[in-house]
Every structure is written in C-alpha cells, then in structure tokens.
Design a protein around this nucleic acid. Structure first.
Lengths: 338, 338
DNA sequence: TTGAAAGCGCTAACAC
DNA sequence: GTGTTAGCGCTTTCAA
C-alpha cells in the first residue's frame, strides 16, 4: 500500500507541491478554486500528511507525554480522561508512560523525551523520587512541563493539585468529632510532598483538638500493600487505634481486609476515612467515607496550562499553582455507633 | 537550548555524519576506537536522536496506538498495564485514544492514524460499532492491527479475548445451582460480539437446566447507567428476578444501588454475579461474586502479537484467535440463604 | 574503515 | 496566486 503524499497530489493536479501544501492548510494566498480542487482530491485519495515530516520540519510534534506512577488507579485514570477531554480539539496526541513508582525509570523516561518527540510533559512523580534534578533539567532547557497531584514545591514549575492539607485536616477533624481518641495516619513512605501535606493536616487537627494520644504516623510502601503484616500489627498493639485516616485508597482497602480478618468492626471498633476516587466506595461494607479528589478537573486544567506554555502564552499567577478543592463524603464507616 | 544532533557530534569529532550515525547504531563496519570516541561524546552531551527524522527516513515510528472505549474502567487500565509491560523493552511508545463508545470517533481516530504516525494499532471497539469497514480498511492496507476483548469475528484480524460464552454459562449455572429460578441477564446494548457471546452462554445454561421462566435479556445503554429507572423497573415487575447475571461491571454496581433503594436483600431476595475486574468487589456489601478477566495478560499478549505482525513474523494459528480464560470467584452475593 | 551525497515528506523563504 | 528551492536530522546507498 503506497501512502498518498503531497507530491502525488501535486502531480495529479498539475500544481506545485508547495501550492498543494498551502491549499490544504487554508492559506489566504491560494485561490478558492484551487483550494477546492486540492481538497477534493485529497479527500478522495484519503490523504493524511505525514506527521514525521511536518514534525521534523516545524520542530513541533503535536504530541504530549503523560508520566504517571501507575495506571491501575482510579485517580490517574480519571486524570487521563480529563487530559483527553482537551487534547483532540487541540489536534494533539497523548503518549502514556508509567514510572511504576521508580525514580530511575522516571528519570530515564524524561531523558528519553528530550529530543523533540513531545512538545510538553505532564508528570506526577513517583514516591521514590526525592531528587528533582531531572525535572529541573527539563525546566532549565525551556521544555514545557507541568506537575500535577504529586507535586514538588521546591521547583519552579506549574503545579496543579488539590487542597491536601486542608482536606486531611477536615478528615481528621471528622474522626475527632465522631468520637475517635486514637487516630492513626496511613501514608505512603517516601518523601512525597503530597504525603507531607496530608500528614501536616492530620497533625494540625490533632493539635487543634488537643488529642491526648500521641500522633501515630504509619508510612507504608508498595510491599506493605501486598503483605499486610505491618498493618495488622498496628491493630494488635494496645491500645489500638479507634480511627484510621488513610491518605491512600489502597491502604483503606487494606484496612478493611485486616479488620475483617481480626474481627474488628467498622465503625464500632474503628472508624475509617480515606482519600479515594473509587466510585464503588458507597457499596463497601460498610460504605467508606471518602475525600474525593477532582481528578478529571486536575487532568483538564493541567492540560490547559501545558498548552498555554507550549503556545508561549503568559500564565496567570493562579495558574502557576492551581489548587482544586476535594470533597469529603461522610458514609457509614465513620458513623457514630451507640 | 539547542538540540545536539549528529552534525554537531560529527564536527566536534572530525568525522562524517554518517560515521557517527553508524557508530551509535553499533555498525560492524566502524572501528572500536571510533565507536568509543563517538559514544563518549554522545553520552557527555546527552545526545538523543531526533525521532521524527529517523521515523521519516525509516518509515517506522516505534510507536503503537491503543484505542479503547473508555479509561475509567479497571479492565482497560489493567490492559494498558499489560501492554506497557512489553513496550519499553521493544523501544516502543504508546499513544492512547478514547472512542467514548462512539463509532464515529473510533472511525476518525483510525483514519487519523493512517499516515505513519504509528506502526500498529490495538483496538477494543465501541459498543456503537456495528460496521467493521474501518477495521477492514486498515487490514486491507496491510497495517498491523489486533483487536482485543471487544472483538469482531467477521473480520480477518488477530483477536485476543477471554472465554466469554463459557464463563457466562458458568455464571448462570452458578446462579441456578444456588437456587435461582428467574435469572435476568444485564448486557450492553449494541451489537457487540462480546455481549452476544455472553448472552449465548446465559441462554445455553438456561436451556441446559430447563429453567421454566422465560429468559430475561435486558440490554442497557450508557444512559441507563446514569438513570437507573429501567433497571428499577425490572425489580418492580412481578414476578421479579431472583438472580442477576451482569455482563458488565457497571450494571452490577447499579443493581446494588437499586436493590438498596428498593430494600431488596442480596443474596436473600436476589443473587448477583458479574463480570468485573474491580479489586474491591470483595469488600462490597455483600461481597460480589465475580468473573475476573485476565486483563493484564490480554494486554501483554495482544501487544506481543502486534509486535510479531509489525516485525513481519508468522503468527502461530493460536495467535490469530487467542482465548485467555477468566476466573469465577464465588462470594456472598450468590450465597445460599436459609 | 570512513566519507559524500541523496532523499524520506513536508514547510517556508523567496522568486515571479 | 503559484512555482522553485532549500533544508529539517536522520539513514543508506555508493564511492573511496
């Protein structure tokens, strides 16, 4: 199968290649008649311009990359959906890369893309990323880049995230008001700014409400998600927590599993609230109280901002650090029991 | 920031561009010494070859496209994960496109890609796709293409799917053996082969077990997922179903919601089983019996087969129609109640 | 073992 | 309003 190209169209129409090119791009210097003829034949032959040739020539790929730690996660799926809500209209294509929570992979992917394959990158960093040099290198090269959700404050790149600290405060406060005296925080190990923000909100709430029990910050890794021994241990200590604030959906799921195993009743023995974008949280036994992040909006806004950067438009101050609020939904897992 | 290119390397090393190119591609006709020198400088300057130039020249993009109906769906996320498990090692990049269950979008995306942007396509068709002309056109052009999950039998393209009919039979049989007398099938409207296979399995089981009540096939659309009136109606008819086999996860979730609303108890009043890849199904109230599809494996195998086609290797007969078995997990939603 | 040169398909600067 | 031409950065003959 031979591709139709400009040359073929030009020959068929007895025109110069450049004329055909201009006609198809609706240049004002081409006569309506010619445009019509060109478009007709292009349509008939199903002509599609070769993207590599134009990318090479124009030094612009019409492609962006999205780098995320994992994809089997409602939050990131929804983000991609949000991104995809703007890309087709812009004539852009979306490449997906997974870092699998591995700093080295993340750095290599970013390195791999430093050659014009994409016009810009959207990234949510892995939880093993402590060093922002790879991001900084991109920024210094003037490559368009935005960070979302798992951001890093100490680098001068647009951030799109949610009000983590505030919602963590509210979640903890919610547990306090439901009578919890010993509230544990389940976060992700690593130096993620997102974990730190959520932890800070948790600690602030404990302090405000003058909770007697010392804060209990538990930082779990991907391994602890599979092997739940560490989590189990927490519930076997005395006194055991009567409230769990999970900063990560997975750990809420784990908490449910462990509680079932240990015959601890939610919400009677322990109340649970979690950051989660799981649609089905309402169907859990018991229904899980959640803080829902505006994942779709985060994706959409992050993409819009990236396009502004690509198009060299000035960013509004609020676009350099955009905070989209989450929503707390109370359900049975934090209900008061008599 | 100026990109480093072959020309710059060549100049710096006092070599011809072609020599540098060959050295970097480890050609046997370049002396070890030269290779070493070239590699050293390339490393030092962080040289990355311009992908558009090589794609243009070699007529090969090192990129594949994945076209799926939606991404906020565990099954498809897992498929992408499976695909990504093979692409980086092959040096390939992955473009994601969403058809949003819209045939026209699907056709346009496929049309858009007929220009060398990608070396191959993996597709799971939308539920509004009844016409396979767009797929057929690709095949006839000799473009590498594989279809997964939502396949179409009537087109000569490699298919990767699960044993839908068999598992639908087993799911229905499972309900029968748990005492259900009036089993309804909830499927997706449209002419999807996958729905048809699952429906066929359902009907076969009813026939085998000589169920007196007539089959009840309910075909729902995306609208019915949002507005659950149609589903509610089914439970308000007399006699109402005492067993639900949902061919789509979403409709199982809807069933739970509607049952809660109507005060119908699962599994006492109605038992429910569903195709679903939701990790959290075990935490539902009650835990949902599921048929889990090997989504990750489907993605990985489909990608492997696509690469064989791209590399013009012969396919084994079983690779032209690969069926990866699903797994039925019994949980409380189909338990016998006394 | 290395170099020179053509050319992939497109766009854009410069004629006319 | 249309044509001619150069060149994007790379790979690949062909020549030396």
């Amino acid at each position: 199968m031979d591709q139709v190209n400009l040359k073929k169209l030009a020959k068929e129409l007895n025109l110069a290649v450049s004329t055909v090119s201009r006609a198809l791009r609706d240049s004002h210097e081409i006569s309506p008649k010619t445009k019509e003829r060109v478009r007709e034949l292009a349509e008939k032959l199903g002509f599609q311009p070769n993207p590599h040739a134009s990318s090479l020539r124009q030094n612009r790929s019409k492609t962006i990359a999205v780098i995320i730690p994992e994809i089997e996660n409602n939050f990131f799926s929804q983000v991609i959906n949000g991104i995809e809500s703007v890309t087709p209209d812009k004539g852009y294509h979306v490449l997906i890369y997974l870092s699998h929570e591995d700093y080295n992979k993340e750095r290599d992917i970013l390195q791999l893309l430093r050659n014009g394959r994409v016009d810009g990158v959207m990234i949510s960093v892995s939880n093993t990323t402590t060093n922002m040099d790879h991001i900084e290198a991109w920024r210094q090269n003037g490559f368009p880049l935005v960070i979302f959700d798992r951001t890093c404050e100490d680098v001068d790149v647009p951030n799109i995230m949610t009000n983590d600290a505030e919602m963590a405060f509210k979640a903890t406060e919610h547990l306090v008001k439901r009578g919890c005296k010993r509230i544990a925080f389940l976060g992700m190990a690593g130096n993620l700014s997102i974990s730190n923000r959520r932890k800070a909100g948790y600690l602030a709430a404990l302090e405000k409400y003058r909770i007697a029990a010392p804060p209990k910050v538990v930082e779990l890794t991907a391994k602890d998600y599979i092997n739940r021994d560490l989590l189990k241990q927490i519930f076997q200590e005395q006194p055991r927590p009567d409230g769990i604030f999970a900063a990560i959906e997975k750990f809420a799921v784990n908490t449910y599993e462990v509680c079932k195993e240990l015959n601890l009743h939610i919400p009677k023995d322990v109340k649970v609230i979690s950051f989660s974008n799981l649609q089905a949280a309402a169907l859990f036994d018991p229904a899980l109280s959640t803080i829902i992040q505006p994942a779709y909006d985060i994706g959409r806004e992050a993409a819009n901002i990236l396009f502004k950067i690509i198009e060299k438009k000035m960013l509004m101050p609020y676009e350099k650090k955009m905070i989209l609020p989450s929503q707390l939904i109370e359900r049975a897992s934090t209900a008061i029991t008599s």
